[in-house]
């Protein structure tokens, strides 16, 4: 479970906070899509969750552990896919995955089980011995995804994960996200692809100017906006235009 409690973050002396008094919870067994225009505060919220930046006020709790108080314990249960994958270019895919498995203290048996499965799933077996610097953008994204899943994290956080993926890989990723969530884990991801959010998410959060504008299932959002069968796109445009 991830719980954001009145979280505020301001960069430098900027008059507008990047995230402003944000509060919401993501429950186990839930896929939550984080939507919002560019600069809305999605990535900042995610960065605060994975310990890359610290909130000015408020708390982020992951499985009831405060990220600020015990960042290492939180990072141990999180799998994180950044918006622009920057894996270790001079390592091969095999060396990188080994590094990630070592960092997350994955057992030998678990490695032997999970690595072939994930490689097959994301179609990376043939490139496994190549250096990551030679990978395409999509391949880097896929190897980062595999690295983030190597320890079967309780909380899987993905920032714009579909960018750079081909349709098949994108499909596989959505399928993997659903499977991960079905085992009682948390999946939180940001996206600009509303169709993905509409089809995949149990719940969507719409954020703008660092504030939460709406939260709920697509049907709940429709009802909040007076019913009808409006698409998520029209709901999104309506909410973020205000």
């Amino acid at each position: 479970m991830i719980s954001y409690q009145q979280v505020t973050k301001r960069y430098g002396k900027s008059p507008t906070p990047a995230v402003n008094n944000l509060s919401f919870t993501v429950n186990p067994g839930e896929i939550v899509g984080f939507l919002g225009p560019n600069g809305a505060g999605k990535t900042t919220t995610i960065k605060m969750t994975v310990g890359l930046t610290r909130p000015d006020s408020g708390h982020v709790l992951v499985n009831d552990i405060d990220v600020q108080k015990n960042p290492l314990a939180v990072k141990q249960i999180i799998g994180y896919v950044p918006d622009s994958p920057e894996p270790f270019g001079r390592l091969t895919g095999r060396e990188y995955i080994r590094f990630m498995a070592d960092v997350f203290k994955v057992s030998k048996e678990e490695r032997e089980r999970r690595i072939p499965e994930l490689l097959a799933r994301f179609d990376l077996e043939d490139a496994f011995n190549d250096k990551l610097s030679g990978y395409s953008r999509g391949m880097k994204q896929k190897v980062t995804i595999i690295g983030s899943l190597i320890h079967n994290p309780d909380v899987w956080i993905l920032d714009e994960p579909m960018v750079g993926l081909d349709p098949k890989s994108s499909h596989t990723l959505k399928e993997t996200m659903r499977q991960h969530c079905d085992t009682g884990k948390v999946v939180l991801f940001s996206t600009h692809v509303l169709e993905v959010a509409e089809r995949l998410c149990d719940r969507v959060l719409i954020i703008n100017h660092g504030q939460l504008l709406a939260s709920g299932t697509i049907d709940e959002l429709r009802q909040q906006k007076g019913g009808g069968d409006s698409s998520l796109e029209s709901l999104f445009l309506e909410l973020t235009a205000q």
């Binding site: 095999r94 060396e95 995955i97 080994r98 498995a101 070592d102 960092v103 203290k105 994955v106 057992s107 030998k108 048996e109 490695r111 032997e112 089980r113 690595i115 072939p116 499965e117 490689l119 097959a120 799933r121 496994f128 499909h171 596989t172 959505k174 399928e175 659903r178 499977q179 079905d182 085992t183 089809r199 995949l200």
Partner: peptide, 30 residues
């Protein structure tokens, strides 16, 4: 098959790939 939510798939349909030690380099201390 792709176990999408609307296709009614569940986690039981997860991949079935046999373990393979050739992929996994030995574990090391941090």
């Amino acid at each position: 098959p792709p176990p999408f939510k609307e296709a009614g798939a569940t986690a039981d349909q997860a991949l079935s790939v046999p373990p393979n030690s050739a992929y996994a380099l030995p574990a090391r201390a941090l």
